[in-house]
Amino acid sequence: MNTTELTYKNVARQMNERLTIKDKTGNLDLTGISNFDTFSNVYITCLYQDVLMRVSSLNIQTTGDKSAQDFIGIHLEHGADSIKLNSTSRIHTRKTDVSEIQERIQNVILEHRVAVDLEAVNEHVPEVLHNAKVHPFEQFYFLRCGFSKTEGFFDIAIGDFGYGIRGTLKQKSEYSYLASKPHMYSIEKSFIPKVTSKNEARGMGLSELHDYFLEQSKGVLFLSSGDGYYLIENDLEKHSVTSGNLEYNLNGVQILLRFFCSE
């Protein structure tokens, strides 16, 4: 039997093929999936919550000993204390401070002796957390940390299913033209300094995050919003920045920060 491993690169395409909605009944076929990365889990969790708002029932098929809970954060713990390695947490935007989450992520890194640049994590992750806190339509977002000792990276994935980047930017008159353009243009725009729906002092966080990953010899920044994505993928052999359309259109913003460990 063919098995599929879900990654940030194929999860949208896979969900487009595996999710059907007919007469207010959803069907999500997760059979044959052998594994998933940190981002995929957060993406599917956001998708699950998004679909639940549009259907009266959602059936999920899995293979053998796997259950839906293995793929989707369904029964989630809340708050900063729930943040553990390989576990998806549901974070209340109003009840949890960015600093609490940041401190907990730092503790996870220290507990598991992950040799990443802690200063960089502490500098850039709060910007993403702050965005997730102020932008989502719902009052919570999802967060998951993953660590691959063999491949030497630490993943932080954060996702919501709110207005998304295009929905947020278009509220400002100078960016209203983005409403009629594919999501990928809004995402690209959001990485330019001072592009924000808020006042001029803002709009620097994503730009700083972007430039940090651009400068790394190894690292991944993947951001999806609607049916658009943006990817900075650096390793020793190639440095690339790609942007484009995804096959599934998921509300909100989902982001992966992959920090590589020092040798």
Binding site: N10, F191, L214, Y229, V241, T242, S243, N245, L246, E247
Partner: peptide, 13 residues
């Protein structure tokens, strides 16, 4: 040019 204005390859996933 700003780092934000680097070359972006467009490719659908």
């Amino acid at each position: 040019p700003s780092k934000a204005k680097h070359k972006i390859i467009h490719r659908d996933l």
